[in-house]
Computed example of a mutant assay.
Amino acid sequence: MGQFIISVGREYGSGGHEIASILSEKFNIPMYDRNMLDQMAEKNGIDSEELHKHEEMKHQGLHRTVRGHSSSIQDTIAQLQFDFIRNKAASGESFVVVGRCAENVLRDNPALISIFVRGDEEAKTERICRLYKLNKLEAKAKMFRHDKKRKAYHNYYSKMKWGDSRGYDFCVNSSLMGVEATAEALYKMISEFLKSKEQ
């Protein structure tokens, strides 16, 4: 089987991260998410917590941009992550990547299979309540906050809008069948697609 890269964009509470993790296990390929910052920090001798504070955020306020280079720490971290994804793709490795505008960063790469996971508000709220021991009001506030941040980040760095079906190969509502069954269905579809590419 040749190289393939699965990018997973997701609404908060949709279980997109868990789906990415299941796909990573089923295909036996690495998954890159927050852990890419840990790898970059280790390589460069930086405190990873400092990087995590600013990840998946568009830059805030006024920052100088000189010859296309921004002085914003958010921009610097975003570009480091984009370079990390490009380098992994260029190495020929197959992997799953969560968020980080990967479907935009790798949009010209023939190995890319892009997924966006959404969910019904009620199901997402219930999931967040369960995972984080929150009440419904707190869960909805957390969901709104995270999705607002993700959307702003994605739309700042990408040509396609966050969650716009035209920017992805597969858009799924995980609330219809649940996270595990959705992951299983995606695994089967991607497996069939990869088989058809080999013929």
Rank of each mutant, 00 (worst) to 15 (best):
S94M: 06
K140Y: 09
I19G: 02
T65Q: 00
G99S: 09
A185T: 14
V105M: 04
E192N: 15
K53H: 09
E42T: 14
N35P: 11
D120C: 08
E25A: 14
N35Y: 13
F27W: 12
S70N: 00
R130Q: 15
E138S: 06
V66A: 03
G2L: 05
I6E: 09
Y12W: 11
R107H: 14
M36V: 06
L51G: 11
S91L: 03
M31C: 15
F82E: 00
E11L: 08
K53A: 14
K159Q: 12
Q39G: 14
L37N: 04
I22D: 09
A185P: 10
R107Q: 15
C101E: 01
V66R: 06
A183Q: 12
I5D: 01
A152I: 00
M36I: 07
T76G: 01
T125R: 07
A139S: 14
K142D: 14
Q3R: 13
F144H: 11
H59E: 00
S196C: 10
S14F: 07
S191V: 03
A89R: 01
D38T: 13
S14Q: 07
N104L: 02
A123W: 11
K142L: 11
G13M: 03
A89Y: 01
S70P: 00
S158K: 02
L51N: 07
E126C: 05
I22Y: 11
S158F: 08
S70Y: 00
R10E: 02
N173M: 12
F27L: 07
H63K: 02
C171R: 07
S72T: 01
S24K: 05
F4K: 07
H69G: 02
N155H: 11
F144T: 10
H17S: 14
G13C: 05
I115F: 12
A123L: 10
A152E: 04
R10M: 04
G167M: 13
K188D: 06
K142P: 08
K197C: 10
M160F: 14
R145F: 05
D120M: 08
K159L: 13
V98T: 10
I115C: 13
V98G: 07
E50T: 15
Q74R: 00
L23C: 06
Y168P: 09
M189L: 15
G16C: 12
D164Y: 13
C101P: 05
G178I: 08
M31K: 13
M1K: 15
